[in-house]
C-alpha cells in the first residue's frame, strides 16, 4: 500500500505545480526556478492569482472530502455529503438574502463570505439542537434535508422578485470557484480547515466503532451524543468555511470518500481518513484546472466540472464495486 500513498502524494504535488502554470495566460514551467525573472504582470498572476487559487483548491477539496466522510460514516449512508446537514443551503439562503434582497449597491466578496458563514452556522445550530433531542440519527438527516428544501424555496421566492443583475450575482456565486480568496487573506481560509484536519485523527477510532452501529459504539465506551455533536461541528466548520469563500461546491464531498474506499479497498478509517483528505485535494485541483480551460479565454463553472466528473465516477464505482461491496 505504501506505493499507493507515495503515488498519490506525488500526483497531488504535480497537480499543484501544474495548476500554477496552466491558465489563459501562458507562464512557462521553468519560472519555478526563477520567478523574479518573469515579467511583472506574469509575476502578479502567479503569486496573486494562481498560487492562492491552488491553495484554496487543495484545502477546499480536502475539507469537503473530510466533511463528506464524516457524514457518510455518521449517518451510515453512502449518499451523504457535506450538504446533507443543510449547512450549504443555509449559506445559500444568507447569500441570496444579501444579493437578491438588499438593494442596489455593490456587494463585496467579504460581505458575501460573511453572510455565508452566518447562514451556515445558523443552520448548524438548529441541527445541533435537533441532534441533542433525537435519539435516532436518521431523524437529524431528514431535518437537514428538509431544511435544504425549505431554504431553496425561499431562495426561489427571492429570485422571482429580484433584478436581473442581482440574480446574475447570485447565480455566479452558485457556480462555485476557488479564485475568491486573495493571498493576503488566505489565512482566514486555511486556518479553520487546518484546525479540523489536525484534530481529525482523533476521530479514527470512534468512526471505526460507528461502522457497526451506534449501539455497538456505545458498548465500546463511546459517548454517542457527544460524538455526534463533535462530528457535526467539525463538518459545519469545514463545509461552512468552504461554502463561504468558494460558494456551494458540489460533488467533491460526496465522491471523494467513495473513491478513497475503492482505491484502498478498505473501510478502515485509519486508512480512509487520510486517503479521503488526500484525494479530495487532488480532485479539487483536477476540477479547478479543467474549469479554467487552459489556453483559451473562456472558463466553465467549477460546479459544472465537478458534476461532469463526479457523477460518472460514482456510477462507475458502484457498478465496478458491486461485487466487492466497499460502499459502506
Amino acid at each position: 500500500m505504501l506505493p499507493l500513498w507515495i503515488g498519490l502524494t506525488l500526483i497531488m504535488a504535480v497537480l499543484f505545480v501544474v495548476s500554477l502554470f496552466l491558465g489563459s495566460v501562458h507562464i512557462p514551467v521553468t519560472a519555478i526556478f526563477a520567478p523574479d525573472k518573469l515579467a511583472q504582470i506574469d509575476q502578479h498572476i502567479l503569486f496573486e492569482s494562481r498560487f492562492p487559487r491552488a491553495i484554496v483548491a487543495l484545502f477546499g477539496g480536502s475539507a469537503l472530502a473530510l466533511a463528506g466522510l464524516f457524514m457518510q460514516t455518521l449517518f451510515r449512508n453512502p449518499l451523504a455529503g457535506p450538504s446533507v446537514l443543510g449547512i450549504t443551503s443555509g449559506a445559500s439562503l444568507a447569500v441570496a438574502v444579501l444579493t437578491l434582497g438588499v438593494t442596489a449597491s455593490i456587494i463585496s466578496q467579504y460581505q458575501i463570505a460573511l453572510a455565508a458563514v452566518i447562514g451556515a452556522f445558523a443552520v448548524l445550530l438548529i441541527i445541533l439542537a435537533v441532534a441533542k433531542k433525537f435519539f435516532d440519527v436518521t431523524a437529524v438527516l431528514i431535518v437537514g434535508l428538509m431544511l435544504s428544501f425549505f431554504t431553496s424555496a425561499i431562495v426561489s421566492l427571492l429570485q422571482s422578485f429580484a433584478s436581473a443583475d442581482a440574480i446574475k450575482t447570485f447565480v455566479f456565486w452558485g457556480f462555485g470557484s476557488f479564485s475568491g480568496v486573495s493571498l493576503a487573506d488566505i489565512y482566514i481560509f486555511i486556518l479553520p480547515i487546518i484546525f479540523v484536519l489536525i484534530l481529525s485523527p482523533f476521530f479514527i477510532k470512534p468512526l471505526n466503532a460507528l461502522l457497526l452501529g451506534e449501539m455497538h459504539a456505545g458498548s465500546m465506551g463511546i459517548n454517542i451524543k457527544s460524538l455526534r455533536i463533535k462530528i457535526m461541528m467539525a463538518t459545519g466548520i469545514l463545509a461552512g468555511v468552504v461554502t463561504a469563500f468558494c460558494g456551494p461546491v458540489a460533488f467533491l464531498g460526496l465522491a471523494s470518500p467513495h473513491i478513497a474506499r475503492f482505491v484502498f479497498k478498505s473501510v478502515d478509517h485509519r486508512i480512509i481518513l487520510p486517503a479521503t483528505i488526500l484525494l479530495g485535494g487532488i480532485l479539487a485541483l483536477v476540477c479547478d484546472i479543467i474549469a479554467r480551460l487552459p489556453g483559451s479565454d473562456y472558463a466553465i463553472p467549477l460546479n459544472t466540472v465537478c458534476a461532469f466528473m463526479g457523477a460518472p465516477v460514482v456510477i462507475y464505482l458502484i457498478v465496478a464495486g458491486r461485487k466487492k461491496k466497499f460502499l459502506l
Partner: peptide, 8 residues
C-alpha cells in the same frame, strides 16, 4: 442486530 459492514 448489527449493521453488516463489507470492506472489512
Amino acid at each position: 442486530n448489527y449493521a453488516r459492514v463489507d470492506g472489512f
